[in-house]
């Protein structure tokens, strides 16, 4: 039973990683860049929601929506100002710029919201008389599942289905796939590459806002560096599943989350990260393009 509860915790954490990994993987698929600032967009989203709900007394759904809007705009502005001028530059130059943006967001947050850790409220509660209930138990109280966990896993599934439908059936989604396949050819077919990249950043950033709120609801501390470690882990998850692939991000995220929680439970929290990264290395050595990545053989 404890194993089952670890597994459920792992799936919940993995769902958050998967949502973040989607942002990385979509941007990578289309713009061929590692957007290191993505983790910090998560942090911004969580702060916006936190202040909307605790300082302005807005209802939580409005807070989440507001966070999504702010992050979407932020993502598009970052893309327009920092990444678009570098479309022709080397990938390393873009990487360093992304790191600059990441520092910028972290330090802006530090100045705006101070370094004091905020305790994030748990929105996912059901009032039951005088008390509020944060979860339910199964098997005579042997297994406790919180509502956050349920909402997180459901949100992840809904987002995944919606994105799969979006990239498969809409005009913009098809344009995205075309751009990730061959940008030059897509442009010749009349696809506006700039708009497509912009929309990709917008979607990725909106997802980051959701991930930020879910992350902070499950692990209720919020500081300007909250986003960086989940960001790195989610990026790892994206590579794990095969970067550029949407189902790969889901698979990679879930596996990484489960491995992390199980390693923490059975080996020790100090070596948790080491185990996660060791598994990643082994997987990449066996399947160098990730679990669901396409192995492209170079022809001469």
């Amino acid at each position: 039973m404890t194993f089952l509860s670890y597994l459920i915790n792992g799936l919940s954490l993995g769902s958050i990683y998967a949502i973040i990994a989607l942002g990385y993987t979509m941007v990578y698929g289309i713009a061929k860049m590692l957007n290191f600032a993505h983790g910090d967009v998560i942090m911004v989203g969580a702060y916006i929601c936190f202040y909307a709900v605790s300082a302005y007394q807005l209802p939580p759904p409005v807070g989440i929506l507001l966070a999504m809007v702010v992050c979407t705009v932020l993502g598009m502005v970052i893309e327009r100002l920092a990444y678009k001028p570098l479309r022709q530059a080397t990938s390393l130059a873009v990487l360093i710029t992304a790191i600059g943006v990441s520092y910028f967001l972290q330090n802006s947050a530090l100045l705006l919201w101070s370094s004091t850790t905020k305790i994030f409220p748990n929105f996912f509660v059901i009032p039951r008389g005088a008390e509020t209930s944060t979860g339910f138990s199964l098997f005579d109280g042997q297994l406790n599942i919180s509502y956050v966990t349920v909402v997180t896993v459901l949100a992840c599934l809904v987002i995944m289905l919606a994105l799969t439908w979006f990239t498969g059936n809409t005009r913009m989604g098809k344009a995205m796939r075309a751009c990730s396949e061959d940008k030059g050819a897509a442009q010749l077919m009349g696809i506006n590459v700039d708009t497509t990249i912009s929309v990709t950043f917008a979607i990725g950033s909106a997802l980051a806002a959701i991930a930020g709120v879910l992350l902070c609801s499950a692990y209720p501390t919020l500081s300007p560096t909250t986003g960086s470690m989940p960001g790195i882990k989610a990026f790892t998850a994206a590579v794990f599943g095969g970067i550029g692939s949407i189902p790969g991000a889901l698979l990679g995220g879930l596996l990484l989350g489960v491995i992390e929680i199980l390693a923490g439970a059975y080996i020790g929290t100090q070596l948790q990260n080491a185990v996660v990264f060791a598994v990643l290395i082994v997987v990449l050595l066996v399947k160098p393009a990730g679990l669901l990545g396409r192995q492209i053989r170079e022809k001469v």
Partner: peptide, 8 residues
């Protein structure tokens, strides 16, 4: 992929 493994 090499970059992420060095990170790991």
């Amino acid at each position: 992929y090499l970059a992420i493994v060095t990170l790991a």
